[in-house]
Simulated assay, not measured.
Amino acid sequence: MPDEWARAFFDEGFEETFRLRGAYSSTQDDLDALCSTAMPQGHEGRVLDVACGFGRHSGPLTERGYRVVGIDASPEQIARARQLYPQTRFVVADMRQPPPGPYDVVLNLWTSFGLLPTRADDLAALTAWRKVLASGGILIMDLTTRERAEHLNRTGREQISTKRVTHQGVTTEARYDWAEGVSYVRYSRNGWSRTSRTRLYSRLDLELALHEAGFAAVSLWGDFQLGPVDPAKRTVVIAGTEASALPSAPHQAGPGVSTLGRPE
């Protein structure tokens, strides 16, 4: 696939395709949980939403009182976001070059990581997000890790796994190259068909990359309510500029799943 695949993928037809698949049904519940566990309290935090799409997180967070800037490389998605949520600031920008901060929180949700051409580009994005965070700030990521992809799609030791499913008029054809560590997924419906490419990171790979990017501490969770990591679910990653910035799980004194300290 060409490196510029995302330019064609995130066009005017993207939102409708994923709406048909039911991809946005949990948005409000996710935000309720996120705001009660990891987001700054008092609803006055400065938030950068990276790969904001049509603003489905940025807009509601602004309505809750947060000061949000949403960025996306797709002019079509930003135009739609501005239409839906005119009170939020949206900017067409590469995730490796975010608007200057400082921000209290950088959000990277819904597996919006691993889309850039190389791992070096992904690391450049993480490093850029770290630089625009305020002291004590956090990065919150929500993504499918390699562990989840294998749990749901790999039956043995095969190097290539494939899957084809049709739901609500959208056909999903996935190809997982485990040696390359990349998934290729084609979504097709009447009048629209596009293919995505996502680099699959294991939880350990993510932790190492985040430390390399300059984050002091990393914690891993199974959902926005800070439940335990579950291979059947996406992983919520919270990385702090300081170890004390990491949230604690409900009824727990310290971070729930923190596997690596920052290497010296």
Rank of each mutant, 00 (worst) to 15 (best):
M1K: 09
M1R: 14
W5K: 10
W5R: 09
F10S: 10
E12V: 13
G13Q: 12
F14Y: 15
E15F: 14
R21G: 12
Y24V: 05
Y24A: 08
S26R: 15
Q28S: 13
D30E: 15
L31F: 06
L31T: 04
D32L: 12
L34I: 07
Q41F: 12
G45D: 11
R46E: 14
V50L: 01
V50P: 02
A51R: 12
A51V: 05
F54W: 10
R56N: 08
H57V: 14
P60A: 04
L61H: 06
E63H: 13
R67Y: 02
D72S: 09
S74E: 07
Q77F: 01
L84N: 07
L84P: 05
Y85G: 03
Y85L: 08
F90W: 06
F90L: 03
D94R: 09
Q97R: 14
P100T: 11
P100C: 00
P102M: 08
P102T: 08
Y103E: 05
V106A: 13
N108G: 13
L109N: 08
F113M: 13
L115V: 14
P117N: 04
T118V: 02
D121T: 03
D122W: 01
L123G: 06
L123D: 05
W129H: 11
V132F: 02
V132Y: 02
A134R: 11
G136K: 07
G137T: 03
I140E: 03
T145Q: 02
E147K: 09
A149T: 14
H151R: 15
R154M: 08
I160E: 01
R164P: 00
R164F: 00
T166E: 15
T166M: 08
V170L: 04
A174Y: 03
W178R: 05
E180L: 13
G181I: 00
S183W: 01
N190H: 14
W192V: 13
R194E: 13
T195M: 11
L200N: 11
Y201H: 04
S202C: 00
S202D: 01
S202T: 15
L204G: 00
D205R: 11
E207T: 02
L208H: 01
L210T: 02
E212T: 11
F215S: 00
A216Q: 10
A216G: 05
L220R: 01
L220M: 13
G222Q: 01
D223I: 03
D223A: 04
F224C: 05
Q225S: 15
Q225I: 00
G227T: 10
P228K: 12
P228Y: 04
P228L: 06
P231A: 10
A232F: 06
A232I: 06
A232Q: 12
T235G: 04
V236C: 03
V237R: 01
A243W: 02
S244C: 13
L246E: 07
P247N: 08
S248Q: 12
H251R: 15
H251T: 11
S258Q: 15
R262W: 03
P263I: 06
E264W: 10
